[in-house]
Design a protein around this nucleic acid. Structure first.
Lengths: 132, 132
DNA sequence: CGGGATCCTTATCGATACTG
DNA sequence: CAGTATCGATAAGGATCCCG
């Protein structure tokens, strides 16, 4: 492993702000296939592991488990065990997690508003590639 | 957080909301190590390939090339060849690419504002883990 | 039911070499 | 200068088994 001290330029030259460093780190943490989908799924209220798995759809238990651990680590999700046998575990958004939903929603809204332009660009690009 | 109706499922699974689908796809496209750093680097104006490489720092030519192709495909970046020998290629943000900076900035601002809480959560989590 | 441990497949990425 | 092509290391992810 041996991860070096974080710089904005992830592995190269230092300099640049601490801000960049934070953003870059956060992006690496949440920019996987499932994190935001899980946050959205929990937006309607707490869910148990398998209910959440069903709700998100297409996620393996391994990935859901590790995604949840990541969210827990960031303080976005609270894990509560209410029973021991059989295990009964509920996941809920924390205040921070709910608050996090706002910038995510802003991003989501932008994507929705611009999805046609983006898809058009991609179609045009594919066109250019195949013609050329 | 404003919700759409319907269950959010990932591609290839039933009952996906179109919105969720778009968001999920966009996230997959931009959520790599370099895309946002390149967008930021181009925020100050057009740059040539190697200048951009220097500016971003730590990126391999392979990753920079493929990142740029992705951005070009989405319509965020315009590639302009002004000379043939030696090649002289400039990359610049399009209007869409610049506009894209806004939601990203919103996200970035949130991260900055909350980075202490997040880091505190992570420290607490690490603590719990080691003590436990 | 929740989720750790293991194995195995696949996608990512970096380094290197080569071209117009 | 601005890339493409190829190769090998390694990390991410899925499938399966098992245990509390």
């Amino acid at each position: 492993m041996g991860e070096q001290e974080g710089t904005c330029r992830v592995r190269g030259h230092p300099h640049e702000t601490a801000a960049c460093e934070h953003i870059s780190r956060m992006l690496e943490r949440i920019s996987d296939k499932w994190t935001l989908l899980v946050v959205r799924a929990l937006g309607n209220g707490p869910l148990r592991f398998n209910a959440l798995k069903r709700e998100v759809g297409g996620v393996s238990q391994k990935m859901l488990a590790s995604t949840l651990r990541g969210l827990e680590e960031n303080g976005f999700v609270l894990r509560t065990v209410t029973q021991d046998m059989p295990p009964m575990v509920e996941y809920a958004l924390t205040d921070l997690g709910r608050d996090f939903g706002n910038p995510v929603q802003t991003f989501a809204d932008w994507v929705i508003r611009n999805s046609e332009r983006i898809e058009a660009s991609r179609a045009a690009y594919a066109e250019r590639r195949s013609v050329r």
